[in-house]
């Protein structure tokens, strides 16, 4: 049950630390562009290119905000996906200064602004336009691991019981927002697009370690396949890339262990 402190007396406000620096600075966004409609005069296929944009930004501002300014004020053709703008919808995974991150969760002040900030599409999925990649293969791997609760027998009338400890067991992997930061930072996935990739394994883990689920065997079989967990070489790129702070590599290790011991 939730502990609630009923009354807390009114009192002087604790001191606030000095406000953050909001003095605007000019930053350079160096963006990898690809415009599929930009066919050459003699029908040459479009080619990717780098383009610099200078934009004024508050240091506490999100990179996404700076990009929206570029799109709104300078070049409407700059194309990227975005929705929530605070790191929960998984739309705006991109490679910023060589690292996979969400543009809406990366603040200007956390990057070196003395140099241009490079922004590219995530790697390993086909680039459709600028920072937009084809997400279908990514979602297909997700679907392949049967990412849903599997149970047998009659449904109970009330909720299934689950202890807080059992619930905690798979908490980390329930946080996944399917942004693909992990999968597209994985060197194995880059060289072998068939590999399920860490995100799919994370979502399999979420069910394999759910005490209510009875589909672990089936999922483990799938992950035991050639393109399954054994391809992972434990390089931790995926863990470093996850904007939700999920211990991705640890989850993969737990799935491997479950496979070896055939026991969850």
């Amino acid at each position: 049950m939730t502990a609630v402190i009923e009354e807390a007396a009114s009192g002087p406000a604790p001191a606030q630390k000095p406000a953050r620096d909001h003095t605007p600075i000019v930053i350079t966004l160096r963006i990898r562009r690809f415009l599929p409609d930009l066919v050459g005069p003699n029908g040459e296929p479009p080619v990717p290119f780098w383009q610099d944009f200078q934009v004024e930004a508050d240091p506490t501002e999100r990179i996404l905000t700076a990009m929206l300014k570029v799109k709104g004020e300078q070049d409407g053709s700059l194309t990227f996906r975005r929705s929530c703008a605070h790191g929960i919808c998984g739309s705006d995974a991109m490679r910023i200064n060589g690292r996979n991150r969400l543009a809406c969760k990366t603040l200007v002040k956390d990057l070196d602004v003395t140099k241009p900030i490079t922004i590219e599409a995530i790697k390993g999925l086909e680039v459709e336009k600028d920072l937009v990649v084809d997400m279908d293969p990514f979602f297909q791997s997700f679907k392949d691991v049967m990412p849903f609760l599997i149970t047998s027998g009659n449904e109970p009338t009330r909720e299934r019981l689950q202890s807080p400890e059992d619930r905690e067991r798979f908490d980390d992997t329930t946080k996944c927002i399917l942004c693909a930061c992990c999968t597209t930072s994985c060197p194995v996935f880059w060289t072998d697009g068939q590999y399920f990739g860490p995100a799919a394994i994370v979502n399999a883990h979420r069910f394999i370690f759910d005490s209510r689920d009875e589909g672990a065997e089936q999922r483990l079989e799938i992950l035991n396949e050639k393109e399954g967990v054994w391809r992972c070489r434990t390089t931790f790129n995926c863990t470093d890339a996850c904007p939700r702070g999920i211990e991705v590599t640890k989850a993969i290790q737990e799935v491997k262990r479950a496979l070896i011991f055939r026991r969850v």
Partner: peptide, 24 residues
Amino acid sequence: AVLDLEKMGLPFSRTPEGRIDQRR
């Protein structure tokens, strides 16, 4: 509606007895 979601697999926070927890 809540029980349906639980049966579909939604991982609600739980009470010590294992029921769906509730807050104010």
